[in-house]
């Protein structure tokens, strides 16, 4: 696919992820919309350009794996999985309803295509290291992708895991930090700043780059660069806007877990369709 066509295709997929996410959360009336919308472009690139996966064989031994450590963004991941064919998108409307297979936070025991249970922040960093380590032990050529939140990086466990990943030369681990600058109680810089995140990651022995997390072409190029990287884990800081695509939620800390009424849904869908 020509690069401009590919970018157009991936942007379309990102829009579809946002649409399904907004609809799913609107169907239950409230949910983690802000941090779901901020990673839609990343998920579009991973699921429609990068990952070696087979929805007809979700347990395929040499598949690439993904750990959404910021597990509250489950609705965005479920939307990507539905679009990729793991289940019908109508399932998304059961989000958080009694007996659902689609809970707020990712659950590998419930949902087809989910590689790891997450929800207690920081833990996905370690479990992703375990998955990547097993791929190395089993001499598989596959990769493990890890998505962290920026606020999540306040957890000490993230740094234990990165120290471990560098020590074990887990170059098949490609992590992303969704750097939208906001956490529940306000700007990350006001609450407990991550400081010079690139310097920290570099000093921990990671290959690192900071990119625009809403530019599918830049994400794709950078991930492909990380995939050829040898001897160290990669951590790509994706600068994003919390709530990206829905004006009411953009750059709004309270969009972490927000009410989505039918009126907000209507306006939000309009906003998303109008995205460039």
């Amino acid at each position: 696919m020509k690069s401009e066509n590919k970018a157009r295709f991936l942007r379309r997929k990102a829009k579809e992820i946002r649409i399904l996410t907004l609809r799913a959360i609107a169907s239950v009336g409230i949910g983690h919309i802000g941090g779901s919308l901020s990673i839609a472009d990343l998920l579009a690139v991973l699921y429609f350009d990068i990952m070696n996966i087979d929805p007809s064989d979700p347990e395929k031994i040499n598949r690439d794996k993904i750990v959404l450590s910021k597990g509250h963004a489950g609705p965005a991941l479920y939307s990507a999985l539905a679009l990729r064919g793991y289940f019908d998108s109508s399932c998304l409307e059961t989000l958080n309803k009694p007996g659902t297979k689609f809970p707020s936070h990712c659950d590998m025991r419930l949902t087809n295509g989910i590689d790891m249970t997450t929800g207690s922040l920081g833990q996905g960093a370690s479990t992703a290291c375990g998955l990547a380590l097993a791929q190395k032990i089993d001499k598989l050529q596959s990769h493990t992708f890890l998505i962290l939140g920026d606020g999540e990086c306040q957890e000490g466990q993230v740094w234990e895991a990165l120290m471990f990943a560098a020590h074990h030369k887990l170059d098949n681990l490609i992590a992303f930090i969704d750097y939208n600058g906001l956490q529940i109680d306000g700007p990350t810089d006001d609450i407990c700043s991550l400081g010079d995140i690139n310097a920290k990651l570099t000093s921990f022995g990671c290959f690192t780059k900071t990119i625009n997390g809403h530019d599918v072409s830049e994400i794709s190029v950078t991930v492909n660069e990380a995939l050829t990287n040898r001897g160290k884990p990669s951590v790509i800081v994706i600068k994003t806007t919390k709530g990206k695509g829905v004006s009411l939620f953009e750059n709004n800390a309270s969009s972490h877990n927000a009410v989505v009424t039918s009126e907000i849904l209507r306006q939000g869908l309009h906003d998303i369709e109008a995205m460039s």
């Binding site: 590998m108 590689d115 290291c129 466990q157």
Partner: peptide, 14 residues
């Protein structure tokens, strides 16, 4: 904390 996460990831890989 990290060790038990690593263990979980290894377990999920069989």
């Amino acid at each position: 904390a990290n060790m038990f996460g690593i263990a979980a990831g290894l377990s999920a890989s069989g």
